[in-house]
Simulated assay, not measured.
Amino acid sequence: MSYNLLQGKRGIVFGALNPDSIAWKVAERAHEEGATLTLTNTAVAMRMGETQKLAEKLNTIAISADATNVEDLNNLFIQSMEALGGKIDFVLHSIGMSPNVRKERHYSDLDYNYLNKTLDVSAVSFHKVLQTARKLDAINEWGSVVALSYVAAQRTFYGYNDMADAKALLESIARSFGYIYGRERRVRINTISQSPTITTAGSGVAGFNRLLDFAERMSPLGNATAEECADYCITLFSDLTRKVTMQNLFNDGGFSNMGMSLRALQQYEKGLHEDCECGPAAEEHHFD
């Protein structure tokens, strides 16, 4: 159902790789709500994914850009403003990647070159997006920028690895840049801490299916879906949330405020007398 919340607004959506992507759902919902937008992803992701297919569906263009490359971002904003006919009203940063997670490096044995890549792609790119937009004066007054985060920025989750550090930095950038951009140009900057969601990136986290089940049992409202996250993003892009900025907002069915639920406790009790199948590294990392 459309409420025309974004009628006449222009946006840029980063990270719509395939229909499982939260960014894909956000782009579709923004279009339904009356916005015009451009899509962007890296050249490799554009070749491997289905971004161009979504662009055709939304009657728009997909612009290749590496979010860690300032020159690419500069071209992205200029091309987007030309294609859309004016300044941008909203931006979604839905980017995250960890070579340490992909290579199954334990957090106590990180490859620091990989860590630098994790931080650059998953967090510092957000700063680069904001800095580039500000220098170009590319975002309209009362515009809105949203980045996707996770509760692991505040709490420790087995297997989330250095992505937790990246999300903590991401949220800090939203606060620091949110103050500057808010005072100067009334641009809002927020992060959404989403439930674990089945996406290409999320599925790479160790024990992801178990995490998904645990969060579902813990959350009084259950896990938020990608579609529900998209709905939340739309409200933050709209004029209904003009005074919301510098916030990390939880869209997780209540998980972030829970200690223990009955459903999770019952499941835990069922397994009390069973040996934990923790994998071949169990002895080495028995404190995990």
Rank of each mutant, 00 (worst) to 15 (best):
I234W: 02
A67Q: 06
H127M: 05
S193Q: 10
Q194F: 12
R134A: 11
G96I: 03
K9G: 04
D137I: 12
Q266W: 13
A168Q: 00
D213N: 13
G259W: 07
F126C: 00
G222P: 11
N74R: 10
Y112C: 14
E28K: 13
D252S: 08
N257Q: 12
N223K: 06
H106Q: 15
E269D: 09
Q131F: 07
G159K: 01
S195M: 14
E277P: 05
T245C: 04
E104H: 11
E28Q: 14
S172Q: 05
N251T: 03
M97E: 02
V205K: 03
L37N: 01
I180N: 07
D165H: 04
L130T: 01
V70E: 06
E184N: 07
Y232D: 00
N190V: 09
F157W: 09
N113D: 13
Q194R: 14
N140P: 07
A62C: 14
L115H: 07
E104G: 06
I95R: 08
Q7T: 11
A224P: 01
V26W: 03
K270V: 13
S2A: 14
S2H: 13
N190G: 13
G202L: 08
D66H: 05
A174W: 08
Y179V: 11
G8E: 11
T199K: 07
A43H: 08
K57F: 14
R242S: 03
